[in-house]
Simulated scan of single mutants.
Amino acid sequence: MPTNPATYDTASETTAGPGTLNGMKRLWTPAWIARHVAMVVLVVCFLGLGWWQVTRAAEGNTLSFGYAIEWPVFAGFVVFVWWREVRHTLRGPREEPAPPEPTVPAPAVRRPVRVSRVPSAPADGAEDGELAEYNRYLSWLNANPGARPGDYPG
């Protein structure tokens, strides 16, 4: 039966978007096959463990009632993460929006402020003995960059 060119949709044959055969090829790479297998194995194991907890709970182990609910929740979480990753992969990479151009000019580069490294004298003129000893220690460390604090002779 010939197709009517006015109503024939060729978009699905030319694009590689989600839902097309080319889009589905992304889910059959070796990494994705490993993810599919891991999802199936985890879901089967989690549901099996849930059934095991149901049988233990039926035998009188009351703690197993909680676990009988927990394992199927884990299986559901695995399916949720797997489905979300499949949808993310089929959507393809997102196009980053271009950053807006700045309307405010960039600030000018300023020169660094020079600061004196000489310790200042106390305001009242009296010299603190411990402070003076500590400043001598720091001066010695500054003059001997390879020295360790334990090598200080004072």
Rank of each mutant, 00 (worst) to 15 (best):
V118S: 04
V54H: 02
H88K: 08
V109Y: 03
E13V: 12
D128H: 08
G146E: 08
N144D: 05
A143L: 04
E127R: 12
Q53G: 02
A106G: 05
M1D: 11
E130A: 14
G50K: 07
A75P: 03
E85Y: 00
E13R: 15
A132Q: 05
G60H: 09
M24E: 07
L49Q: 05
V113N: 10
P153Y: 13
P97Q: 15
T89S: 01
P153L: 14
R87L: 12
L141N: 00
V54F: 03
A108D: 04
L21P: 01
G19L: 08
P93F: 04
P145D: 04
N22T: 12
C45P: 00
V54M: 11
Y137M: 12
G129L: 15
D9E: 13
L63H: 08
L49T: 07
W51G: 15
E95C: 03
R94C: 05
G17D: 08
A98Q: 09
D9G: 08
G125W: 05
N135L: 13
T7G: 05
G76Y: 09
N4A: 13
E101V: 06
V41P: 00
G66T: 06
S116C: 09
Y67D: 04
T89Q: 02
L49F: 12
M24Q: 13
V73A: 15
H88M: 03
W52R: 10
G23S: 02
G125Y: 06
T29N: 06
P2D: 13
H36I: 00
V113W: 07
A75V: 02
V86A: 07
V81C: 05
N135S: 01
S116E: 03
G76C: 15
A121F: 05
G125C: 07
P97R: 15
S64N: 06
N144W: 03
W51P: 01
